[in-house]
Structures are given as structure tokens and as C-alpha cells.
Write a protein that binds this DNA or RNA. Sequence first.
DNA 1: ATCATGCATCGACAACTGTCAATGCTTGTG
DNA 2: CACAAGCATTGACAGTTGTCGATGCATGAT
Lengths: 124, 124
Amino acid sequence: MINTAGPRHPLPVITQPAVCCSPLIGRILDGAAAERLASALKALAEPTRLRLISLVAAHDGAEACVCDLTDPVGLSQPTVSHHMKVLVDAGLLEREQRGKWAYYRLVPGALNALADQLATGIGR
Amino acid sequence: MINTAGPRHPLPVITQPAVCCSPLIGRILDGAAAERLASALKALAEPTRLRLISLVAAHDGAEACVCDLTDPVGLSQPTVSHHMKVLVDAGLLEREQRGKWAYYRLVPGALNALADQLATGIGR
DNA sequence: ATCATGCATCGACAACTGTCAATGCTTGTG
DNA sequence: CACAAGCATTGACAGTTGTCGATGCATGAT
């Protein structure tokens, strides 16, 4: 038997403080919203990509090209290119071709937007 | 040839505003830190788990047992149990056995902590 | 003690993902 | 034009992951 109404089981009156107001808290995520948030998070949920983001942000002018990143990350150029594409597709990085080089920058506010989606208003 | 020093290429004097101060921005993530952050994010980067978190938070008393979740999520009980374990292991949910039921709650502040790690201080 | 219920674990399988070497494309240079 | 350099794309492969049915383990009720 499945209980769809809620805990109608031994419930020692646990009344949590009214904690609310995030995409995750306060309302129930439908499938589509969950898919979108998840795919954005998937782009971040990878050690190499986290390091790439941090390397780009820490680089001179807050931008970097692939040849600046392969060495610090210790991976092949195709692999780095692949990760950069994932981050661009996720809207976290932007790419600009300048001569032979492709420069990558953080999309301003993108990380913040993601962070807000995770926790806006929770316990603040 | 690899350019490890930075863009010594055609650089049209792009001086970004001083945007800083997050685990991702402002300092470079080492491998270990990247691994830890990534594994926490991996737990979240899945549509079903996002929905489970939101369902738990929206449930009466901000807690729910597995039998409350299988139906809304439309997956088998073993699959839901598996996802809940992933979320508990990631420190996002806590589990309490009460009689025959296992109740899951949000770990207070866990989502916020993750969100802060993503974007603390960026552009604020 | 026996049985039913709620949940976890196991084994299996398909789908996805990170990685590389090889190759192709584009831009700047001799 | 030919060549080199930077980057993207392709194909391949191993490792990971989401899912399920079957099974096992507790707990509470009869």
C-alpha cells in the first residue's frame, strides 16, 4: 500500500521553522524544471570543469584560451575543448574567436543565477 | 607551443571589473577541492533527485518516507531508495528510522552551503 | 510464531560520460 | 601558395550511472 497523503504514521509533532522560497523548497519541481536545473548542474558537477572555470576566472583579464588551460589541467587539447564546449552550452562560459585563438570568459551572473536557484531565500 | 603565462596574444585591453571571492572565482581550485565540490554537485545534478528534494521539503513537516515519494516520482521503490541514499551520502538529506518507516529531511543549511560555494561574493 | 509491510541490497543491463589519438578546419605567416 | 599553429570534430573505448526485478532484513500486527 502506498501512502500518497503524507505521514499518517507515528509523528512526534515535528514542526520545522518556516523555511521556504527556492525552486527546490517551497514548491514542487515538475519534470521539465527538474530537467533544466539538472542539466545546468551537470555541467558544473565535474572536477575538471570546475577547475577550468576557476582557471579562466583567475587568468589575466578573466579570460583564457585553450592553450592556456591544457597544461594546468593536465589533459589533452581535445578533452579541454570538449569541456569548454559543455560549459558554453550550459551558459556558464562565453566564447570569442580572436585570430587563431578562442577566448573563454565567465558569463556574468551565470554562476550566481545557478546558486540562487539552489538556495534563494533558504534560512536567510 | 603552450602559452602558460597568459594571453600574450592580440589583447584589446579588456579590463574586467574586479569580480572575485568564490571557491571558483578568485583562487584556483586544486584537484582535491574540485573533486569534493564536484561530488556534492553530482548528487544534485539529476532530475529525479532534484524532484525528491523538493518533494521532501514540500511535504507535511518537511519530511517524507520512501512510500510517499515513489508515486509522485513515478519510479520503483528500489530506485527511490537508491536516490535517497545518494542524497544522504552527499549530506543533503538526513535519514531517521521511525518504526517501519524511514523519514528523510533536508539537512538545514546544506543547500545554502553549496550555493555559497558556487557564487559567494560574485558581483554582489 | 507467523505474516504483512516498508525499506535496503544485489545483480544485471542499457545509456551516458570522460578521455585520447587521429583528423579536419581556419587563421596568420613566410 | 604552402606551411604552421590553435582549436574543433570524429571514432573508439573504458568507466560510471540510472533503472528494474528479485531478494533479504527489520518492524509491527495478528
